[in-house]
Computed example of a mutant assay.
Amino acid sequence: MKILKLFFFIALLYTTANAQITKGNWLVGGDANFSSVKNKSETGDEKFNDFRINPNVGYFFMDKISGGLQVNLVFTNTNPGNDSTKASSYGFAPFVRYYFLETDERINIFAEANYSYRIGKTGSSDNINWNGYGFKAGTVLFFNSSVGLEFSINYVDTTRRIDNFNINTIFVGFGFQIHLEKK
Rank of each mutant, 00 (worst) to 15 (best):
G68A: 01
G68E: 00
L69T: 02
L69M: 13
Q70I: 10
Q70D: 05
Q70C: 03
V71D: 02
N72S: 07
V74L: 15
V74G: 02
F75R: 05
N77H: 03
N79H: 11
N79Y: 13
G81Q: 10
G81A: 12
G81C: 09
S84E: 12
T85F: 14
T85C: 08
K86V: 11
K86Y: 11
S88N: 13
S89I: 08
S89Y: 04
S89T: 09
Y90A: 13
Y90D: 01
Y90F: 15
F92R: 05
F92S: 02
F92L: 15
A93T: 03
R97G: 02
Y98M: 00
Y98D: 03
Y99F: 14
L101F: 15
L101T: 13
L101E: 10
E102V: 06
T103Q: 07
T103N: 04
T103G: 03
D104G: 00
R106Q: 14
R106D: 08
I107E: 00
I107Q: 04
I107M: 09
N108M: 03
F110W: 01
F110Y: 05
A111S: 11
A113R: 00
A113D: 02
A113E: 08
N114E: 09
N114M: 07
N114Q: 05
N114T: 03
S116Q: 12
Y117G: 10
R118Q: 14
G120I: 04
G120M: 06
G120H: 05
K121S: 08
K121I: 11
K121H: 12
T122W: 06
T122P: 04
G123T: 06
G123W: 14
G123C: 08
S124N: 15
S124T: 14
D126E: 15
N127A: 12
N127D: 14
N129C: 06
N129F: 11
N131V: 05
N131L: 01
N131C: 11
G132W: 08
G132I: 11
G132T: 09
G132S: 13
G132P: 10
G132L: 08
Y133S: 05
G134F: 00
F135I: 09
K136T: 07
G138V: 08
G138S: 09
T139E: 01
T139D: 05
V140W: 01
V140Y: 04
L141W: 14
